[in-house]
Design a protein around this nucleic acid. Structure first.
Lengths: 123, 123
DNA sequence: TCCATATTTCTAATATGATGGAAATATTGA
DNA sequence: TCAATATTTCCATCATATTAGAAATATGGA
């Protein structure tokens, strides 16, 4: 993931309404939720909801599909995964020992620390 | 981690300059960097740098200590870890199977998926 | 085709965040 | 105490994001 992509995702998630929307979609799982359902649950006026969904779309944090009259939104898990991976990269460069002490779970300067699951994301 | 803490961290990281600062500090490791060093490397005027460091401080993403005339800033790894943990919580609630398919590395609805390192962060 | 539903786009008002020069504060060494 | 260094705070300006009503668009059912 490039810096600008990560930045776009962080900007998008750095707003309470959008964080709420995104978490709702994370919880909803791959099946997603119709825009109307989201607006209802979060008590958002249509225009406001649409604005925030648009921001999340531009950040590639959500995808959507049409199902009859409804647009079904779902969280873009791969992008979320890539963001998490990005945020743990380049940590404590050149000082693995002290870094391990400071941040055992996020800082993984050596490949051997990678879990198979995490490694899969980066490819 | 509470929602408001996570939100504050995301707001703080959702700005290019602050993301640059934070990544620089992540790379620098626990030894940290003096404010002046940061400003020099990122070509930021003192007032601008100080403003952004202040934002990062309020989000608890950085800590600082005085060393002679310099203020040494370093990344707050535990808060970063907590943020990563927060973002993977409550994923695909009640539908573990489909969630695993959608997000194998971040979505961990069952405790057994926790790594010891990640679990340590949440306590 | 016509109407109801679902959602987006347009628009203008409002609020908030960012910038950086200049002055103020804190620390140290002489 | 005084000067030099390091950083912050103050302040005014500028830029950008957010809000939500109203109108426009898209879809499907009768």
């Amino acid at each position: 993931m490039e810096k600008q992509e990560a930045l776009a995702a962080l900007v998008a998630l750095g707003h309470e309404t959008r964080l709420d929307i995104f978490r709702l979609l994370m919880q909803a799982g791959p099946k997603g939720l119709a825009a109307g359902q989201i607006g209802e649950r979060l008590a958002l006026p249509p225009a406001t909801l649409s604005f925030h969904l648009s921001q999340l779309k531009h950040a590639d944090l959500v995808t959507f599909r049409r199902e009859s009259r409804s647009l079904i939104y779902s969280a873009a898990y791969p992008v979320m995964n890539a963001l998490l991976a990005y945020m743990t990269e380049n940590c404590c460069q050149g000082a693995a020992a002290s870094c391990e002490a400071a941040a055992p779970s996020t800082c993984q300067p050596e490949e051997r620390h990678e879990t198979p699951a995490r490694a899969r994301v980066r490819g």
